[in-house]
Amino acid sequence: MEILVYGTINSVSLALMGLGFAMVYGISRVPNFAHGALYIICGFVTWTLFQIVGLSYFVAIILSLCVNGILGMSMYRFVLIRVRGMSISEIIASYAIGLVILEGLRFGGFRGMTYTLPVFMEGSLMIGGVPVDYHRVVMTIIGVALVAGLWVFTHYTRIGLALQGMAQDERAAMMLGIDSDFMAMVAMGFGAVLAGVAAILILPLGNIVVESGYHVLIMSIAVCIVGGLGSWMGAFFAAFIIGYAQILTVVYIGSHFQMVVAILAIILTLILKPSGLFGQQKELEERV
């Protein structure tokens, strides 16, 4: 029972981490290696607005999500747009931006002290004999709702359909009058907001530390690779696979191996089936 409950919670948090990455790659084919940095910076902005500026928690969250969205969009508009299409330069550039943000934060004094965000709700309840605090429940519910909302958004709204069209065939979408650069920028902002949402939901469970930026990056890559790059529903399911696998390893082998599981999942997926479990790419495209 414990495994089931915590496995689900872990899986949802992984899905939250990976969703933004999958979204951005799925739509604009930009592997956003600054994803972890966007995640952390949202946490720090919220903390600053809440603790130092003294805004109410809710306002701080909204503001920091906006900041994150703008950050993501400007990252695309000013940097990534120039290397669009050169996948390796995209990786290197976005990764370098991520490094600048993360190491800049680390240098800028966010270390030593502990930074925490308050949880939404105190207290805990029992699910099948396992104590779970309310925040985790809220996180799980919001996470699932978010995925459902995204599904509705991409299938029933105009901009969502435009994004989907672009994901499938960028050139055809351009011919139908969809501004691909604008859409990619929107997608990037969207991904950044999703990273922020993940941060605000997950960070209150622990301290805000810069290292977790790298952790989030690896986990989101793992989720996306296993699910198939570009398919964010795949990423959602892969989050459950990796999430349960991690909890099982923690219970039966040891917590040291939690990360090993994720990395091993990436390597094995790439070796055995590079298009992932739900990937749409044709086999010939990614293999020689």
């Binding site: 690896i218 390597i267 790439l270 070796i271």
Partner: peptide, 18 residues
């Protein structure tokens, strides 16, 4: 080795961490 582009880059990025 059969992997290309982004895929090879990601897998090699993971090896040292692993």
């Amino acid at each position: 080795l059969p992997l290309k582009g982004v895929y090879f880059a990601i897998v090699t990025l993971m090896y040292p961490l692993f």
